[in-house]
């Protein structure tokens, strides 16, 4: 029978031995070296029966097919745009994927997107060497105007969204702002009241800084000035 060395939610660093024994299995952020399960990233340990996982606390955005991202147009060609999505190289949005309109030959592309415009788009294809195609076809995907964009650690986006969107919905409801979190760590915040936009920003940054701590939901709720909910603790 194997031996477990970590508790749930403990901070681990690369090289930490998480468990010994073949009955434990490494998942994301961990790997196996002979009979040991070792952490490969800075993060918090998560043990699910035999499965040991490290939820990263830092890290760069790794584009994946299906990700919804917030991007900025950085350059354009005759039939497509190059979009900065926070990776080393740009993603391509072709005119075909950008609009359902019929676009005539020689039409002015800047009618749709200018350099510097922001969008919420989906990565429809990512090759092994990270050539990326974007699409605006789908619910909620569009050009974004107004509001502001902040950057957080991409690894913390799942915490910001919360289980089934619980955290982000709480912020939306409390501030009355529209908040869209891209998987690439860029978050668009738009509200009528600038004070509320600021409050939403601060709440998001609080999650970004304290994602590894216990009782995060309660903390954010207190920050937003909400009372404890009847459905209890998480």
């Amino acid at each position: 029978m194997g031996q477990l060395f970590v508790e749930e939610k403990k901070v681990v660093v690369p090289g930490d031995v998480l468990a010994i024994g073949m009955d434990y299995l490494p998942a994301g952020g961990a790997f196996r070296d002979k009979d040991k399960v070792i952490a490969s990233q800075v993060g918090v340990a998560s043990v699910n029966e035999r499965l040991i996982r490290v939820i990263p606390l830092a890290g760069n955005y790794v584009p994946q097919r299906g990700d919804v991202v917030v991007g900025k147009v950085s350059d354009m060609t005759y039939s497509s745009w190059f979009v900065d999505i926070g990776y080393a190289y740009e993603a391509v949005l072709s005119i075909k994927e950008a609009t359902s309109d019929f676009v005539e030959r020689g039409a002015e592309l800047t009618d749709y997107f200018m350099i510097g415009d922001y969008m919420v788009a989906k990565l429809v294809n990512v090759t092994k060497s990270k050539a990326m195609d974007l699409s605006l076809r789908g619910p909620g995907l569009r050009k974004i105007q107004g509001g502001k964009i902040i950057s957080v650690t991409p690894a913390k986006v799942p915490r910001i969204v919360g289980k089934g969107g619980s955290m982000i919905n709480m912020i939306k409801d409390a501030t009355g702002c529209n908040v869209i979190a891209g998987q690439n760590g860029r978050i668009w915040i738009s509200g009528k009241d600038p004070d509320m936009e600021r409050k939403a920003t601060e709440a998001l940054m609080l999650i970004n800084d304290k994602a590894h701590t216990r009782g995060l939901t309660e903390r954010v709720r207190a920050f937003l000035g909400l009372k404890g909910e009847e459905n209890g603790v998480q």
Partner: peptide, 9 residues
């Protein structure tokens, strides 16, 4: 490691 890269050790 602080930058979050995957490392063996």
């Amino acid at each position: 490691a602080d930058a979050g890269f995957k490392m063996k050790d």
